[in-house]
Design a protein around this nucleic acid. Structure first.
Length: 459
DNA sequence: GCATGATCATGC
DNA sequence: GCATGATCATGC
């Protein structure tokens, strides 16, 4: 059937809301073994009645609309998230370099997307997932500017003969994610002999989560940029513009400028400074549109006069059961660093604590950073492998006395492990322990980035 | 002075 | 009650 108008198509698409894939499927793809065909193919064939294809043209060609069927999930804290990134068309490195954004395969195929969200639930069979919502999606003006810049970043890398070095961390909303059965799925690239992993355009996980929250939960985010700002400046440049004028001032003085109470002990003090300097005072950071969509997480860095933070940087408490039961390629830690951009808000002390116990904190600047692929695949992987190995049985947890105290000791990687990362306790008190897959009990631990590594990133 | 373990303070 | 950011305390 040909849909003559967008309205006609959308009216039909909405009829799927509330239905399960089992109810829709007429192709026996679902009953025919486990992985025969995607849920998207069932919708294409059984619901819209067209043959599955892999053409460069949009699925509903006369309307210029691409169909995408994508999962979301409910979290323990009652929020919803996209289950995964949205994978779009494969990048043909040889051809894509000949295009501009408006003639690119990305834009031709994906400028209008019929998005059908279904709810993924771990305990359900695929046939019982329910379609919740169908929407006709187009990119907002601001999103489109950021995506254009992302597209340019990707194409520039291919034109520089570096398609093999593409990574999702390079870009903000539009990613170039790997697509293929394994590392051997490669393609030729035009300006280098090195085969590059096959990649597809994708909308990042965090971007999709923002869409899910908007369209399933009606949650709105607050933006700190105007579309016209993004025409000539990247997101990073706009951030630098907003923070730059305050470099060299104390935290106290900055708080005064934006009229927020000075309370350096408060956990919300730095977040208040950030939203204040961005011109959206009072906005919680997870409500900032650009931060949510790009998965930008702020971290405060306080440098000592020697340029090194006194303390290393701590992260989440480790789920050791997950760590023991996953592979590196799909590991929490790998995804964590691939998918996160950090906004370092950097302050420095100009005196040592010894010289001046009441020393002041001066703002030094911000740095938008993601961990380089090399570091993830070397040092972070080393950490993952060592912890994974210890959890198979060679972990030692002992108790030794230290003065009046009994102290717990373990042989997880320490700060001299590889210069980048280590494992250390992070608990509320001595009773705050977890059970390990080995059967041992241990004080809650988290992974850390070494203070010396942070210093190297900043300098 | 650094490395490592311990735990506090805040906010949801 | 717990997660998280932050910092303290001890021993070498």
């Amino acid at each position: 059937m040909i849909y003559e108008t967008e309205e006609e198509l959308l009216i039909h698409a909405r009829k799927a809301e509330g239905k399960t894939f089992g109810e829709i499927d007429q192709s026996a793809r679902l009953s025919n073994g486990k992985s025969k065909g995607s849920l998207g193919q069932i919708i294409e064939e059984s619901f819209f009645g067209y043959q599955v294809n892999s053409e460069a043209r949009p699925d509903f060609e006369n309307l210029g609309i691409e169909l995408k069927v994508t999962p979301f999930k409910r979290n323990k804290n009652n929020t919803v998230s996209a289950k995964e990134r949205l994978v779009l068309n494969i990048i043909n490195y040889m051809e894509e370099v000949k295009t501009s954004f408006n003639t690119s395969s990305f834009w031709k195929k994906n400028q209008k997307i019929l998005l059908m969200f279904y709810e993924w639930m771990p305990e359900l069979n695929r046939r019982d997932y329910t379609i919740h919502k169908s929407i006709l999606f187009t990119f907002s003006q601001s999103d489109l500017e950021i995506i254009k810049a992302d597209w340019e970043t990707i194409i520039t890398k291919i034109r520089s003969g570096k398609a093999h070095e593409l990574s999702e961390g390079d870009t903000v909303y539009l990613g170039a994610c790997t697509k293929g059965s394994n590392k051997n799925t490669v393609r030729n690239q035009p300006y280098s002999e090195t085969p590059a992993m096959q990649r597809a355009y994708s909308l990042k996980h965090s971007y999709m989560t923002a869409l899910v929250r908007k369209y399933i939960k009606n949650e709105e985010l607050i933006s700190f940029v105007q579309p016209e700002d993004l025409k000539n400046r990247t997101l990073n440049e706009l951030l630098q513009d907003k923070f730059g004028p305050f470099i060299g001032l104390t935290d106290k003085k900055i708080a005064g400028f934006i009229d927020i109470p000075y309370n350096s002990k408060s956990k919300s003090f730095i977040p208040q400074i950030i939203s204040g300097l961005l011109g959206i005072k009072g906005t919680r950071l997870n409500q900032i549109e650009e931060f949510a969509k790009a998965n930008i997480q702020f971290k405060t860095v306080r440098l000592e006069p020697n340029g090194v933070p006194k303390e290393s940087m701590s992260f989440e408490v480790i789920d050791f059961h997950q760590w023991a039961n996953e592979t590196w390629e799909e590991s929490y830690l790998r995804e964590r660093f691939i998918q996160t951009k950090f906004l370092f808000v950097i302050f420095e002390y100009k005196e040592t604590k010894k010289d001046n116990p009441n020393r002041e904190l001066y703002f030094k600047g911000i740095k938008l950073w993601h961990m380089p692929v090399k570091t993830i695949e070397n040092e972070i992987k080393q950490l993952w492998e060592e912890v994974h190995r210890l959890l198979k049985g060679s972990l030692e947890v002992n108790y030794v006395s230290r003065g009046k105290q009994i102290v717990e000791k373990n042989n997880f990687p320490k700060s001299n492990f590889n210069g980048v990362t280590h494992i250390r306790p992070k608990a509320t008190d001595g009773q705050d322990k977890v059970l390990l897959p080995t059967g041992q009990r241990i004080t809650k631990q988290c992974y850390w980035l070494n203070n010396t590594y942070i210093a190297k990133i900043i300098n």
